[in-house]
Design a protein around this nucleic acid. Structure first.
Lengths: 194, 194
DNA sequence: CTGCTTTTTTGACTTTTGTCAAAGCAAGTC
DNA sequence: GACTTGCTTTGACAAAAGTCAAAAAAGCAG
């Protein structure tokens, strides 16, 4: 499908050029799916076998605890979705990935990716560069959480991911920020005054 | 130096085999340094140009704020030390890396590493695998910080990194856990009773 | 052993955040 | 327009953690 190529190639090329042959193998593996709002991409105790590219839509990840669901990540359009801890190690995930809006996804499996790594060394460079990108992303999230108090965390997130506040509910955002919904509400009210 | 080879090769081989030629290039770049306790490996506003391997010793990273220094990472023997955000992007660091015990370090520069990536594709695979390892490590740290309350964080860290409690002061550990030293002290006292 | 310094603990009090419960708002449906 | 249903805000109170100050304990040098 030419549209998949048109969607993904520019993203790859931002990192590193990929040979025609490698591209062909990659796109022959790539699967397109539509996922209606509420679709679960990964369940707890399940091994994450797919790496998704979110062409269109919105998704999030959460961990179920006795008390509540703790939101741990959000994905927007053009993001690569996967539970990296489970995907990289191929051990069961502790988290759930759920689609929050009707979405269009492209995906390949872990095994297919390993074949690509073996067949085309340049794919290792791409994998490394994309991983570097996600490492920096995660480091950024870590930064967010070392911030104190609640209000500063809110401000930082608002600045870093303004889109989030238009797509997620305040309950989900509060959970992600690791503060109660009530505290988030009060923090926002306070904000308006100053 | 044969000793560097003996120290590092087994670690590489755990991930992926490296050709003789690639090894030769790598070890020709590798520099050995001794760093007495208190040595600063990276200062804020400085670009992190080196990737270190901590053969022997103990080191940590902290961010200076108006109020205090916030500890953000610890490294033990056999760890790779670098400020990845600065090293990967080659933009100035916001953190300080300091050696807490007399240490022996091996290191290569960012530019040397790029030469290795270009000259030997297999190095990309190694880079990717090591990065995967550090991603998982960081995800783990993130996990630690999503834990609430203070006592649970302490328990988790105690379980995950018992060595830490023998090498770092409680003040440093409290800062790393993002709780006050007094709270950490009380949490530990509480622990003894039960 | 003795005095010094550094680290850790304890106490009293304050601030921040969480919890529970109820009320307010908004969007969509009949 | 009235009625669900889901999301957000507000209020009252409780719990957790921070701060400041001082005491106790542990390490070290002479």
């Amino acid at each position: 499908m030419t549209t998949k190529r048109a969607d993904l190639l520019p993203i790859f090329e931002k990192f590193i050029p990929i040979s025609e042959a490698a591209q062909d193998m990659f796109f022959s593996f790539l699967m397109e799916t539509t996922a209606p709002k509420g679709t679960i991409l990964l369940k707890p105790r399940q091994i994450c076998t797919r790496l998704y590219f979110l062409k269109e839509g919105f998704a999030y990840q959460y961990r179920c605890t006795e008390k509540a669901n703790i939101v741990t990540y959000f994905w927007f359009e053009q993001d690569f979705i996967t539970n990296l801890p489970s995907f990289l190690t191929q051990i069961p995930s502790t988290e759930t990935i759920e689609v929050l809006d009707d979405s269009i996804l492209y995906s390949i499996t872990y095994d297919q990716l390993q074949l690509l790594y073996q067949a085309y060394p340049e794919f290792n460079a791409l994998g490394r560069l994309i991983l570097e990108h996600y490492y920096l992303e995660l480091a950024n999230v870590g930064d967010l959480f070392s911030t104190y108090p609640a209000k500063s965390r809110y401000d930082k997130l608002l600045q870093q991911k303004p889109q989030l506040f238009q797509q997620a509910t305040l309950g989900q955002i509060a959970s992600y920020l690791n503060i109660s919904q009530e505290t988030l509400s009060r923090v926002r009210a306070q904000k308006e005054i100053s």
